[in-house]
Amino acid sequence: MGKIMDVTAAMSGIFYRHPSPEDPPYVEVGQEVNKKQVLGLLETMKVFQKVKSPVKGKVVEIVAEHESPLKDGDVIFRVEKQ
């Protein structure tokens, strides 16, 4: 078992799992991801930021719900470091 890393919201905003409503989600639970891979988007006052993986590893939990409002520091993903 690698270390579990929390991926948190850098600021308050709305979380999106998909690049657009028609597209599939960026990632699913269990998926292997690279460091800096885009996991989702965070929209604050109409500005979109990419939520990126801090490490190479595996997505073990998607904590935040799609289209939900998050506060600064809320956990969005948990990624197991490889």
């Binding site: 690049p19 657009s20 409503p21 597209d23 988007l41 929209e43 109409k46 979109f48 990419k50």
Partner: peptide
């Protein structure tokens, strides 16, 4: 490209 489409869709309902 995809981020630009996403922003366009969110702001104007047309991506």
């Amino acid at each position: 490209f995809s981020v630009a489409r996403m922003e366009a869709g969110a702001a104007f309902g047309n991506n």
